[in-house]
Design a protein around this nucleic acid. Structure first.
Lengths: 165, 165
DNA sequence: ATCGCTGCAAACGGTTTGCAGGACA
DNA sequence: TGTCCTGCAAACCGTTTGCAGCGAT
């Protein structure tokens, strides 16, 4: 159930925090607070899909005491201003990921071990545009998740199905 | 926030309940109970995306008193045996939809009014296969959701952004 | 007869919210 | 200085679970 995504390089984290982050908030007339910077930095530095809890834990580790409510509020905020994306990998909670630029990618999730692999296909952007045109929607973003078994888990499958209470 | 999906025709609901449903359960050595039939029938008859609460309400309406716990357990079960699909349209709860045959379809969701439109593209099946081959995954299912504004909502947009507590 | 399901109600856990005090612009 | 944010803790709410009894096979 742990995160098995290959960590991306920091992606110019310093630059983002120095400029893009402040700019995005100011553009929406939102105050730049110490807590918001801290939460954003954690997310940008990790380059992974973090849950609110994980963000909170990592903040504690560096003695940044940010209330959990603020963590939730800030993550929601980052999504709204377009700096982060929310994901639901069916774990019972949400995960958040930074979103820098329009380079969209999608996810493949192993339903057995929880491994998450990112991938990108150009065709998907085209499909998105076509469907939008056909239905009159203005598509802002997409979430494509392929569920299945990773190579490792595919080997040892075939257990009995029971309701398990 | 209401369901705006065009209701599909009952899709041979009677036939499904008469055979496919029992067969699917028996195949997994799962008892066919009155409650399970009732929940499945509600889902198949509606042909929509229903929440556990909605299923429960509809059961009450026809004086089928099924405990809410059983509704949740049964919906989970239907997903496991492949008769239903679980969806998360970011409403804070899950929705369930019957799944008859391999005819997959995807969803486009209006983030303003909650309208859900279904669509289908053959290319997506191909992409799914290709990505699976490239990564060694055995893909079992997918969830593609396009988020944006429907034609109606696209007109009246552009309000100020605030954290709104 | 056996094993598993059902119902109730309580527990659970992620997320949200009310409110008093503090911080940004 | 005014407005918005923060922190705490309690509330929320969809969902899960323990357990005694019933039901399907």
């Amino acid at each position: 159930m742990t995160e098995l995504v290959t960590p991306r390089p920091p992606l110019g984290c310093a630059a983002v925090m120095g400029g893009l982050f402040r700019a995005a908030l100011q553009e929406h007339h939102l105050p730049v607070t110490h807590q918001r910077e801290a939460v954003a930095r954690i997310l940008f530095e990790s380059g992974r899909h973090l849950s609110a809890d994980e963000v909170s834990d990592r903040l504690s580790l560096i003695n940044e005491n940010v209330g959990k409510a603020t963590v939730y509020r800030t993550l929601r905020l980052l999504v709204r201003v377009g700096l982060a994306t929310e994901h639901d990998f069916d774990e019972g909670f949400k995960r958040y990921e930074t979103r820098v630029g329009p380079a969209h990618h999608d996810h493949m999730i192993c339903t057995a071990c929880g491994a998450v692999v990112e991938f990108h296909r150009d065709e998907l952007d085209r499909v998105q545009t076509e469907v939008a045109g056909a239905t009159g929607f203005r598509v802002l973003t997409r979430q494509l998740k392929l569920y299945g078994l990773c190579a490792d888990c595919d080997a040892g499958s075939g257990q009995a199905l029971r309701q398990v209470i």
